[in-house]
Design a protein around this nucleic acid. Structure first.
Length: 425
DNA sequence: CAGCAGGGGGCGG
DNA sequence: CGCCCCCTGCTGT
């Protein structure tokens, strides 16, 4: 900012302070908030910009999340810590009791908050003691699969839960990634058989199952609100906005894929479903889905209840069996505390308001104790996994059931049976 | 009428 | 609990 040629340099003296103050004010007033963090039943409407600025984790998450106003459910993070972290992000400072420091750091690590957990920037506080996690390095994200990594990271980190840093060894999962694509297919192909392996790999990461595990604990520990964190659902705003587009995009893609299927399907008739489609669609879907859903790390889940990974299952869903709970691999042992889930809201964009307002129960699932499966692509919910899987196939375009007499193939076995009967009769 | 999507009930592990 | 099958409602041709 020099003024070499008659240029004048105008500086705003208190720019930083003013900016920070304004940001904080905006947060208080919930103005322009475009993402809601949910933890322990509390909702914090905040700004993606701020979160992205302070955490690559969030940055990536939003980068891959089409939703206009996503809700990120943070598990294993206490609301007190969340508030402290928000204060840290918005104001640059936060006061914390020494006794709470470790826990706060842990939370910061989970979220990869710069300055607290991520070395990116010089550690501001001593807090950074742990700072560099192995993964931080990974963060560089040069790699194409940041998400997964993140998830893993998360998982690992979380897993440690209270204690320590994750094993640095990037666990197996990474490896899986590579295979993932293919494996996916396979998995799909086997869908009927159900192998979870395949699933694990891919989905695994996202794995929420892990989440589930943890959840129970959490519940135990605190169940303040009925609202289950796991349950928050976000919707892709359907009616309302174009957003649908986003959500829908995915669908669209699926559809496309579906088309593809048909071709293949046709040929394969004989082969029965399992293999058929593997070919192409799967991947895209997955990808799309994963992206959409999982997004960055946050992921996935929706399932409610915590128990199972059901949620994830969905993802896995494609594979059909997915659910199985736990995919150990990724999930990891329980450690998992995983953390966050990104969900689609049913409500409209302004969910924030709503959420903020009341318990938001509506949108949020209330059946906390029951298992309820929420479709990440639409507002469909079902207490039956099977129904959920069946439904989810409509989004993925997967049509594992093909007619032996014609190219017809469907995602619903019942329909196939019905169809076959016509041939017979 | 065919196809699609979803709910309900029954069965087996 | 998960899966299967039946049935129903809706939509498009």
């Amino acid at each position: 900012m020099m003024a070499s040629d008659g240029m004048l340099s105008l500086s705003w003296n208190n720019h930083k302070a003013t900016f920070c103050h304004i940001l904080s004010t905006l947060r208080e007033k919930e103005r322009y908030t475009d993402v809601t963090l949910a933890c322990e039943g509390k909702f914090y409407p905040v700004h993606k910009l701020v979160l992205s600025t302070c955490s690559e984790y969030f940055e990536k998450m939003f980068e891959h999340t089409p939703c206009k106003h996503p809700v990120v459910v943070l598990k294993d993070i206490k609301c007190a810590d969340m508030e402290a972290l928000l204060s840290y992000m918005y104001d640059g400072v936060v006061s914390v009791l020494q006794q709470d420091l470790a826990r706060l750091i842990k939370a910061a690590e989970l979220l990869q908050i710069k300055g607290l957990a991520v070395p990116d920037e010089p550690p501001l506080k001593e807090l950074s003691k742990k700072n560099a996690y192995p993964w931080s390095s990974r963060d560089d994200r040069s790699s194409p699969h940041p998400k997964r990594r993140r998830r893993e990271d998360m998982m690992t980190s979380t897993s440690q839960g209270s204690s320590l840093p994750p094993p640095e060894s990037p666990p197996s999962s990474p490896q899986h990634h590579q295979e993932s694509n293919q494996s996916w297919d396979h998995s799909k192909s086997h869908s009927q058989d159900q192998r979870e392996d395949g699933v694990d790999q891919r989905v695994g990461d996202p794995v929420e199952p892990a989440v589930e595990f943890s959840s129970p604990k959490q519940e135990a520990s605190h169940n303040q609100e009925p609202v289950d964190e796991s349950l928050v659902k976000e919707e892709v705003i359907e009616g309302s906005e174009d957003n649908q587009g986003e959500g829908m995009d995915s669908r669209i893609e699926y559809g496309g894929m579906g088309g593809g299927d048909s071709n293949t399907g046709g040929e394969e008739q004989g082969s029965k479903f399992p293999h058929q489609l593997d070919t192409k669609h799967p991947q895209p879907l997955h990808e799309a889905v994963v992206e959409a859903l999982a997004g960055p790390s946050g992921m996935q889940g929706w399932l409610g209840t915590g128990e199972l990974g059901g949620g994830f299952s969905m993802l896995e869903g494609y594979s059909e069996d997915g659910n199985q709970e736990v995919h150990p691999a990724s999930t990891g042992p329980h450690g998992t505390q995983q953390s966050h889930q990104m969900v689609w809201l049913d409500y409209d964009t302004n969910m924030a308001d709503k959420v903020g307002a009341q318990d938001s129960t509506k949108n949020v699932l209330r059946n906390e104790k029951k298992k309820t499966f929420y479709c990440p692509c639409c507002s469909y919910t079902s207490p039956k996994v099977y129904h959920f899987k069946r439904h989810y196939r409509t989004h993925t375009g997967e049509r594992p059931f093909s007619c032996a007499h014609c190219p017809y193939h469907t995602s619903d076995k019942s329909n196939l049976i019905k169809h076959v009967r016509r041939h017979i009769s």
